[in-house]
Design a protein around this nucleic acid. Sequence first.
DNA 1: CGTATCATTGAGCTTAGTCAAAAAGTGTGG
DNA 2: CCACACTTTTTGACTAAGCTCAATGATACG
Lengths: 236, 236
Amino acid sequence: MTIQTVSALRNDRPLPHPFASHQHRQLKSLGSLAAVTKCYRGQVICSQGSPASSWYCIVSGVGRRYVVRPDGRRQIVDLLLPGDYFGFTAHDDYDFTVEAVAEGTGIASYPRRRLEMLADSDAALGREIRQVAFQALSRLQSQLLIVGRITALEKVSSFILEMATRLSDSEQDRVILPVSRYDIADYLAVSVETVSRSLTDLKHRGVIKLSGTRVLRIVNREALEDMEHDGQRMHS
Amino acid sequence: MTIQTVSALRNDRPLPHPFASHQHRQLKSLGSLAAVTKCYRGQVICSQGSPASSWYCIVSGVGRRYVVRPDGRRQIVDLLLPGDYFGFTAHDDYDFTVEAVAEGTGIASYPRRRLEMLADSDAALGREIRQVAFQALSRLQSQLLIVGRITALEKVSSFILEMATRLSDSEQDRVILPVSRYDIADYLAVSVETVSRSLTDLKHRGVIKLSGTRVLRIVNREALEDMEHDGQRMHS
DNA sequence: CGTATCATTGAGCTTAGTCAAAAAGTGTGG
DNA sequence: CCACACTTTTTGACTAAGCTCAATGATACG
């Protein structure tokens, strides 16, 4: 598990393909309220402890939602891709921090108070908000299932498959890893070295192929799906 | 990690204190729609794959929300205590199963379609639904932070402290564990043996005291909070 | 009062964390 | 354009936390 301080993590160069906004489901009927801003790498969108005054949506690029533990360890609780909403809390303050990962990440922000008032008179909007909150629930549950897995091979395999699904580019089996090994490690709650070792392991088995460090190709999807469930007895 | 089949888990006898419904925040302005039913131990409230036709609230007792993996392993993704809502999905079907843990667990169920229509004309209700969804998000994030911890001692310590907070009976430092060791194991994503060992460890250190298997007393809260963050270097 | 399940304890083994260092990229400035 | 500095990624060796298998105690229920 990574003990690096947050400021030490900054391998977030522009991505090969600039992450098309293919999922562009912004809240309908809201052009006026949404303020879209471009963020630089590592820019804090909202931070743990400060008043939860806005909801947000990723328009383009990548974000990471995380919590820093007392001992300095960082747990990424959500990887945010285009179309993903965040900023929801049950309390008055955010209980997490969100940063832009890629250069030029586009964020739409919605003033919470105003939006809630608007939802009071626009039932369709209210439904939409609930719906995106449910999607956030779904993402979180998926991640819990990944982190709850046993072996690192299972976690990394799941991660690859999840990414392949969530950022389905033209080609189904070409995945451009949106984040660094450090981020993957903090997302899966394993050490960076273990992430690296798992990837080379999958490579040696001929399950995946790496072109550089970020471009990944799923060579044998079936095998990868086996690893996801049964990373244990995959020792042949 | 537990490989027991779900039906094999049934240590869910009536609890010493019948879990007062001290948190009784049911959806206001809804007496008519809420059908409250009593459930027996292990009774399935809603199951993975079937149409998500209702939302629910625990009125009394305890519930477990879980997912069974292909290999038979079970991951509990939410422990449900009185006042907790569940049943939210982004899709048409539930992607989890919920069972009553304690005998006589009371469940309020709300037909989803009807409730959504009602929310269309009652903005306050719409807000409430969003709010309870946000609470579900909060619980899930908390659990992710627990499962993402490194050592078993940290996980178990966190679990105890979380339970102490969530079911704050009269006395702050007396915790009645709402579930079996098996359930704790599947909630924390560790093996039953490890849960047991961690508890006896904490007992030997004088941090907690156990009266029977379910009644727990926090003797040294400060030490427990230390374990929660720093279970590693607690080897004195 | 017996039986099934839950809980605890022990021994051995495997996975992954830690520390350390080399290799591979990336970016900058001369 | 190349060289240097920096970061990220990979690999290695060692250690230990926790899983597995196995057996014994404890507890509830019929």
